[in-house]
Computed example of a mutant assay.
Amino acid sequence: MNKKEVIFVLLDKFADWEGAYISTCLNIGVKPGSPIKYTVKTMSVTKDPILSIGGFKVLPDYDINDLPTDYAGLILIGGMRWFSPEAAQIVPLVEKAVKENKLVAGICNASVFLGANGILNNVKHTSNGLDYLKQYAGEKYTGEANYVNKQAVRDGNIVTANGTAPLDFCREILYALDADTPEIIEESYQYYTNGLSPK
């Protein structure tokens, strides 16, 4: 089976932990032994190495000029650079993905970036609190009525989450991508949430 690529969009000082669960579930299967439908690739503005907040160095597979067109979705990982001029270069790729009804997911400050570029105005969404979103997203964000105060929200192919919700973010993306059965997705979520020794 030809596996579709899911592209993780990373900027310098990205939050390593925010994409760890979803990248693992996509790359090796939602549950060990499950079918693997997707493969994980990384993208940044250039192909220069980028450094995570935790000190991991990543060499992106793609830059903004050579992203393939047949990928399954974009996952924007939060961090410290989503309000910078370099982030603005990502906007056309995100708008194109939304038009093509591909998955577009943003966590933490990447969800604010989606709000700041008008992507969230007509879909249910969340972020790092409504006041934070309004403060940093600016005037292009008019979607306050669609804000949901939850860890993660999925509306069609748009998934958003706050920065404390990597597991919920993972679960909603798995549903959006139909990565496995609902039962397996929930089992995976419970396993990572409660661990081997539940309290």
Rank of each mutant, 00 (worst) to 15 (best):
V45C: 13
N121G: 04
T42H: 10
K3H: 03
K37H: 15
Y21N: 00
N146R: 06
F14D: 02
N194R: 14
N117H: 14
L26Q: 00
K124T: 12
E5Y: 01
G29N: 05
V148Q: 05
E187H: 08
L177K: 05
T46G: 12
D48S: 14
M43H: 01
K99P: 02
N146T: 05
Y191H: 15
D178H: 08
A137C: 07
V58A: 10
G106V: 06
F14I: 03
K140D: 11
V45Q: 09
T164D: 08
G19W: 02
L120T: 09
P32Q: 13
G115H: 13
R171M: 04
V98C: 07
C25P: 00
L133F: 14
I119M: 12
L76K: 03
I77A: 03
N149L: 12
V153I: 11
V94N: 05
D180L: 00
V153C: 03
V30N: 02
I184N: 04
D66L: 02
K37C: 09
C108T: 11
A165Y: 09
D131L: 12
I107Q: 03
K31V: 11
D61K: 05
N162M: 06
L196Y: 10
D12Q: 05
K124Y: 13
S111F: 09
E5F: 02
I50L: 06
L74C: 06
A176M: 08
G55V: 06
L51D: 10
Y136V: 05
V30R: 00
D131V: 15
S34D: 13
N146L: 11
Y192N: 12
Y38H: 14
S23T: 07
V148P: 02
L76A: 05
G129E: 15
Y62C: 12
N109I: 08
T42Q: 04
L133D: 13
I36M: 07
T142S: 11
F169R: 03
K41D: 03
P68V: 04
A165L: 08
P68Y: 02
K140N: 14
F169K: 04
N194L: 15
V6H: 01
T69N: 13
G115V: 07
A110S: 15
I184Y: 02
N157Q: 15
G115K: 12
L67H: 03
A72M: 04
P182K: 08
K31L: 15
P85D: 12
A110T: 10
L67D: 02
S197Y: 13
L10S: 01
T46K: 09
M80A: 14
G79C: 06
A110C: 13
V6P: 02
G73Y: 09
P60R: 14
Y21W: 06
T42D: 06
L114V: 15
Y141N: 08
L130M: 14
E18Q: 06
K199C: 11
A179S: 05
E144I: 06
L67Y: 01
L11G: 00
L196W: 11
Y175I: 06
N117D: 08
L26T: 00
A145P: 08
P68T: 10
Y21E: 00
Y141E: 11
P85L: 12
N122D: 14
S34C: 15
